[in-house]
Design a protein around this nucleic acid. Structure first.
Lengths: 71, 71
DNA sequence: ATGTGACTTTAAGTCCGTC
DNA sequence: CGACGGACTTAAAGTCACA
């Protein structure tokens, strides 16, 4: 399991808890719709600025997206 | 204060606690010496993989580099 | 031992679409 | 609605000479 996939899973989980589609969520945080899909699938090595956007959109702190993820 | 600078400061602090020069630290984690300098100065929007390398070199978890950083 | 500017190469991130 | 593909554009990764 890569760091990207673990983070991606966590993001997907939190997004679904907010009942948002990838499209809606992407629009909300200002990234492209296809990109969120790639991130959730663990296909992209995200930058901290993008991670920050995502965290804000999910109403969590950046570090909470990474906490207890061990790799 | 940007997220990059806050993380950079934290990295520099932890590196110095280990009595490592940028050169030694860069060599240890397998990145270029000038790159670490840029990261510590907050000039780079680093990816999570780079952050992971740095965290490992500092013997901390990735999320500990971000914990309580609020931006 | 570190800062800086100018790079080249690689990958992040966008935008079009189809299934 | 989400996976996935191809062709992009922008920016990060990574290197170097010199201050």
């Amino acid at each position: 399991m890569t760091l990207e996939k673990l983070i991606g899973n966590r993001i997907r989980c939190l997004r679904l808890q907010k009942n948002l589609s990838q499209e809606k969520f992407a629009e909300l945080i200002g990234v492209h719709r296809t990109y969120i899909g790639m991130v959730e699938r663990g296909e992209r090595n995200i930058t901290i600025q993008t991670l920050l956007k995502i965290a804000k959109g999910l109403d969590v702190h950046v570090w909470q997206l990474l906490k207890d993820i061990d790799v």
